[in-house]
Design a protein around this nucleic acid. Sequence first.
DNA 1: CAATATGTTCAATTTGAATTGAACGCTGAA
DNA 2: TTCAGCGTTCAATTCAAATTGAACATATTG
Lengths: 154, 154
Amino acid sequence: MNRDPIDHFIEQMGFMTQEDGLPRIAGQILGYLIVEGEPRTLAEITEALRISKGSASTNCRQLADKGILTRVAVRGSRADSYMAVTNPAEDMLAGMAARFRQRARTMEDAASDFPAAYDGARDRVSQFANFFRTSAEFLDEWTKRAQRQTADSE
Amino acid sequence: MNRDPIDHFIEQMGFMTQEDGLPRIAGQILGYLIVEGEPRTLAEITEALRISKGSASTNCRQLADKGILTRVAVRGSRADSYMAVTNPAEDMLAGMAARFRQRARTMEDAASDFPAAYDGARDRVSQFANFFRTSAEFLDEWTKRAQRQTADSE
DNA sequence: CAATATGTTCAATTTGAATTGAACGCTGAA
DNA sequence: TTCAGCGTTCAATTCAAATTGAACATATTG
């Protein structure tokens, strides 16, 4: 089983999103849509990946929320269609940056409640938090640069 | 419950590693060791976090493998001790870069098996893979820069 | 040597999240 | 108005991973 290279790719994409804490199915949907390159309806996705309508619906919406898919209205069909954005990875990194920033904030908040006796600990936590904040900025910068390159090459 | 700010911080760290696909306990251990700032034995960790000896052992080893903790031999004690490295986040980013690179390779491999009829798909996958590869390089560069800064400020 | 203190391993269990499938609601067509 | 097609929701189920706990191995002490 699974000797088909397309299926294999889709499967791998599933594993990757799983590593990132996203449902496996989300990656499979993304993989499928990258391969197809054109809008596909929920029904088509359901059929191609042999998953339930519910999963397709929920996961597509979540991916769209993250900016990795776009919802498109196909003329003459009243079904919702989705397609992968031109460079999905950029949006994935942008999401990562957002998570890092959020994380830094969470840690700073926590550290600010430390009692006075924990001065050293507070400093260490702050340093840690700071690294996340700076990394988030860096990722943003990198994402922007990549976006510019993508735009240029069009 | 959980009004203690230290506990709260440790708890949050657990959630964060969980988001990253690591066990919750791994984050709690890291949080605890950052707070403590000095080597702690497995027994102390077990006791402080109310977790099993097995979990403490396994998770500490995994964190050490990733370079986030270091194992230290404390004079006069035959117990293994662990402490958080000075800047754990750097090692986390380095790990991320490695994963990105691996991912790019996996995708390229998959795409190279696509039949001729899937030319467009292969291109799209390549572009996707390429982004990961380039991002990995960028992350490496960034990590190095951060390490230099850390070194400077010492 | 016996007794104690440690770390590791692994099968069993628990836990939490992904996934399903059926019920529901909306919309447009006839 | 009814019907068919579609997307959404959510309770129940399934599944995978984390966690435990007990058995084990090794080293150290007296």
